[in-house]
Write a protein that binds this DNA or RNA. Structure first.
Length: 879
DNA sequence: CGGTGCACGC
DNA sequence: GACGTACGTGCACCGG
């Protein structure tokens, strides 16, 4: 078997990883992003290449033999940031754990070590793979040596073989040094021939093959200027060539046979991963079984009593409660058992036992018996499904954790306890398995795990509450999110009625139309293919039909709607594809999708609102997502005709805040002009156009209003000049100008934007009206993109988040008002700035007045809040 | 089973 | 000048 040598340019990959990833800290406060990125790359290489020999080469010190030739070599280069330097020792530690050789040599660079070994291996007919981000290494490419250059991110590479180089760069590997000699390399401060760039250099090499021939035949070089430049910089060119030439005879003390790689041993690798805090990588080096066994074995002893009957002595004044189920959808999942922990002990109550016990049910419904839970809404719904009206929920760890830091991806009990370094509970995955392998374990194991989670929950309450108070988030937690959680639970459990028959009819109709359009498309294309596959559609449009390529994606041609829109008039196939896409979306996502999740018996849909997910405080909706039901295009809007009241004689009632985000902006920026704009009662986009373009109302053209609207949209969603240019189809420069003009018109808004960014830089986070918090660590990033994104987020989150706060409070107020007024009307859905309800016909008059008043008065801002409402027989008609 | 491209809402 | 650009969810495809 041929041997395979993998050579990694350690510095290059570490650099790449460092700049590609945010500055991660491990729990010891040491930066680990470069090591982390390097590790992901390493794991990928090991998997894909299965090397028999391997070495990671590093640059040694500041000076190299090249500096003797040219003092300014690599001059002007930014100093290695200390946050990166400190990671190199960790990198060495990591490689040792993997039993991978690493090497550096005084006065030489990693390139030279790689070159020397690569050529040695080549002679022995080994296969060689070099991994780096440095294009200089391409000079090594040969039939035996492939160079993988990082493309984007860290693990994304492009493999350079001689034929690939010819195709992509139009040169052969041996010409790389001559190429660099001519064009230079600003990053290494290599001069080359001034004024000669890549294009000219390639042209010259195509004509003359190499540098020597260029100079030997200077007369034949076309262009007087170019000739002069070459003539005057001959010395520089040759020096540049020397500098970029890799030394393939470096005096290294190791040979290819020394860098044998026999694979790593899991224990040493898992040890460093743990040490560095790379928990997410553990599963890549351990089998699921290994990891789960280890996790379970590491747990301290814990005793949980499996009860045979619920008795009073188990039910203290205050208890942690976990109603355990597998899967996600608590509207349908089975309950596997119940964990109960309080000062009297830790108990596991088998499902049947609990729900047949009047003692347990009485306790659950007793408001004065306090319950601490994880996910109050889920717990509430699970109980509700058993006919139990749970009361007395006093603490919800999920919501607390989310409010403390919404950026955490995992808010489950084991994850939280891990973060707080409290051992004592395994991850669900380690107990139940994952994916298709999920199953309920035997009762003793189940009881132990549920008991441990419940116990952890019991122990975490105090710390979480303290944290909330420190953050001034107690009110947000206690008066807003906690009550809302139960209201959302009621809404979800109530569900929305669906006119199944109507939806099925629409589906049949649509199916016919789709089949017809599909046929027409194949006719126009001259062949049939999978129209749902962008990968197959691309070549048809841009190769066979030779339509102009507007945009490319990383995997091929872009066929997105905005691209097709630009091609609309160029071929009859385009409008048909667009229509097919539009209707196909309706069919698959909305018609088939909704029919798949509707309750077969009640014909109701029970979505789940995720209250602990978005970074801004908005809700999200899943299974199904009822927050993105079509409205913009009439065709899609008809889907709403299938959403109907649950009872005869009832109506769907919909109310929404008008321009809530811009009103919030007016309030928090206290901008006089913007406040005036709202008090003026004029359409806000028209008003913005008047202010930005300095024209009277009658002189606002459709174009002006459209642009003003896009700018307002941009302000609300925190998009960039690029984003605005995309949405208006204008250049970035023009978009930037619009934004500037907007800020000139509303100086208070400008001042707010500046302040909030400053404030975020200083504090590290931004807040909303009700003290919702979002941390923005990247606001001090040296990476322009990351920093800009964080800045826009700083400006946008208080706006969007405050709007979210307001509608949440309105929901609480409205829920109470409906109860007070003893109305049957009930909330069904929330769509960010809109509430959808159902109500008996006779309540509509009361409701109109009540809903608008409650929503408008839930908070008092510097500008009035305005609510529009409508009602009808279906959601469609409530417009 | 996870990544990608696309499309829907706010 | 780089780099990739509001937030979500869900579908189909496709390659491993």
């Amino acid at each position: 078997m041929t041997k395979k040598l993998v050579l990694i340019d350690g510095n290059s990959i570490a650099y790449r990883a460092f700049f590609a990833l945010p500055l991660l800290n491990n729990d010891k406060g040491v930066h680990t992003n470069a090591v982390y990125g390097f590790t992901t790359m390493l794991l990928k290489i090991l998997e894909e290449e299965s090397p028999s020999h391997m070495l990671v080469a590093f640059d040694a010190g500041k000076t190299t033999f090249r500096h003797k030739t040219y003092e300014e070599y690599k001059g002007g280069r930014q100093k290695t940031p200390p946050e990166l330097s400190e990671q190199f020792p960790l990198l060495h530690e990591l490689l040792d754990a993997f039993h991978i050789s690493h090497y550096q040599l005084e006065q030489y660079e990693a390139d030279d070590i790689i070159g020397t070994l690569a050529r040695q291996a080549e002679k022995e007919d080994w296969e060689v793979k070099v991994i780096s981000g440095d294009r200089d290494l391409l000079q090594l490419v040969s039939n035996h040596i492939t160079v993988a250059l990082t493309k984007k991110g860290i693990t994304n590479v492009e493999n350079y073989t001689p034929s690939f180089m010819k195709e992509k760069m139009d040169i052969i590997p041996e010409q790389i040094i001559d190429l660099k000699a001519l064009m230079g390399d600003s990053s290494d401060n290599i001069p080359g021939v001034p004024g000669v760039g890549e294009k000219t250099a390639v042209k010259l090499l195509n004509q003359f093959e190499n540098l020597d021939n260029v100079y030997a035949n200077l007369d034949e070089v076309s262009g007087k200027k170019l000739k002069e430049k070459l003539e005057n910089n001959k010395e520089e060119a040759y020096m540049s060539r020397d500098l970029v030439t890799i030394n393939i005879e470096s005096p290294i003390e190791i040979g290819i046979e020394d860098v044998i790689y026999k694979g790593y041993e899991t224990p040493s690798v898992t040890h460093v991963f743990r040490d560095f805090g790379f928990n997410s990588l553990l599963e890549r080096v351990q089998s699921d079984e290994e990891r789960s066994e280890e996790a379970v074995e590491a747990l301290p002893a814990f005793d949980v009593k499996i009860v045979e009957e619920v008795t009073e002595d188990m039910l203290a004044e205050t208890s942690a409660l976990v109603v355990e189920m597998l899967g996600e959808n608590y509207h349908y999942a089975n309950i596997e058992g119940i964990g109960l922990v309080n000062d009297n002990g830790a108990y596991f109550i088998p499902t049947e036992m609990a729900f047949q016990s009047s003692t347990f049910i009485k306790w659950a419904e007793d408001e004065s018996k306090k319950k601490w839970v994880f996910d109050a809404k889920k717990t509430f719904v699970l109980m509700q499904r058993q006919g139990i009206h749970m009361k007395g929920i006093e603490f919800d760890l999920l919501i607390a954790s989310y409010l403390i830091n919404p950026a955490e991806n995992y808010h489950d009990i084991p994850s939280i306890s891990h973060r707080l370094e409290k051992k004592g509970v395994a991850f669900d995955e380690d107990i139940y398995g994952k994916g298709a392998k999920v199953k309920v374990p035997e009762q003793a194991i189940l009881a132990d795990h549920v008991g441990r989670k419940t116990n952890m929950l019991y122990g975490l309450k105090e710390q979480a509450e303290e944290h909330l108070r420190e953050n001034s988030q107690w009110e947000l937690y206690h008066e807003l999110e906690m009550p809302l959680s139960i209201i959302l639970g009621v809404m979800e459990h109530t569900g929305v009625s669906l006119d199944v028959e109507r939806l099925e009819n629409m589906g049949e109709e649509l199916q016919k139309r789709l089949a017809d359009i599909e046929e027409e498309v194949y006719e126009l294309a001259g062949e049939s293919f999978n129209l749902n596959s962008p990968k197959q559609l691309g070549p048809i449009l841009f190769e066979k039909l030779e339509l102009p390529v507007v945009k490319k994606t990383k995997t091929g041609y872009s066929t997105s709607a905005d691209v097709l829109e630009q091609l609309r008039d160029q071929h009859a196939i385009i409008p048909k594809i667009l229509l097919y896409r539009q209707l196909g979306k309706l069919q698959s996502t909305y018609i088939e999708g909704l029919l798949k999740v509707v309750d077969q018996e009640s014909h109701k849909i029970h979505t789940r609102f995720n209250q602990a997910l978005t970074q801004t405080g908005r809700l999200s909706s899943t299974d199904p997502n009822l927050q993105n039901i079509p409205i913009r295009l009439e065709e899609g809007r008809k889907i709403r005709q299938a959403f109907i009241p649950s009872q005869e004689g009832w109506r769907i009632f919909s109310s929404d805040y008008s321009q809530i985000e811009l009103r919030v902006l007016a309030h928090i920026s206290n901008d006089t002009k913007l406040i005036q704009a709202f008090n003026n009662g004029e359409d806000i986009h028209t008003q913005t156009a008047m202010d930005v373009f300095h024209v009277e109302k009658d002189d606002v053209t459709d174009m002006m209003r459209r642009q003003a609207k896009a700018v307002n949209f941009g302000i609300v969603y925190g998009i960039s000049d690029f984003g605005l240019s995309q949405s208006l189809g204008i250049t970035r420069r023009e978009a930037k100008k619009f934004i500037e003009r907007y800020f000139e018109s509303y100086p208070g808004v400008k001042a707010y934007m500046d302040d909030v960014v400053q404030d975020a830089k200083q504090k590290g986070y931004v807040t909303t009206l009700m003290n919702r918090r979002r941390y923005l660590p990247e606001i001090t990033s040296r990476n322009f993109n990351r920093r800009s994104f964080a800045e826009r987020t700083a400006m946008n989150t208080p706006i969007q988040g405050t709007a979210a706060d307001i509608i949440k409070k309105a929901m609480i107020d409205l829920y109470a008002a409906l109860e007070d007024e003893k109305l049957e009307a009930r909330m069904l859905l929330q769509v960010h700035d809109e509430l959808i309800m159902e109500a008996p016909e006779h309540e509509l008059d009361t409701l109109k007045e009540l809903v608008a008043r409650v929503m408008e008065e839930t908070v008092s801002l510097e500008v009035p809040l305005e609510v529009d409402y409508a009602y009808g027989n279906t959601w469609y008609d409530a417009k």
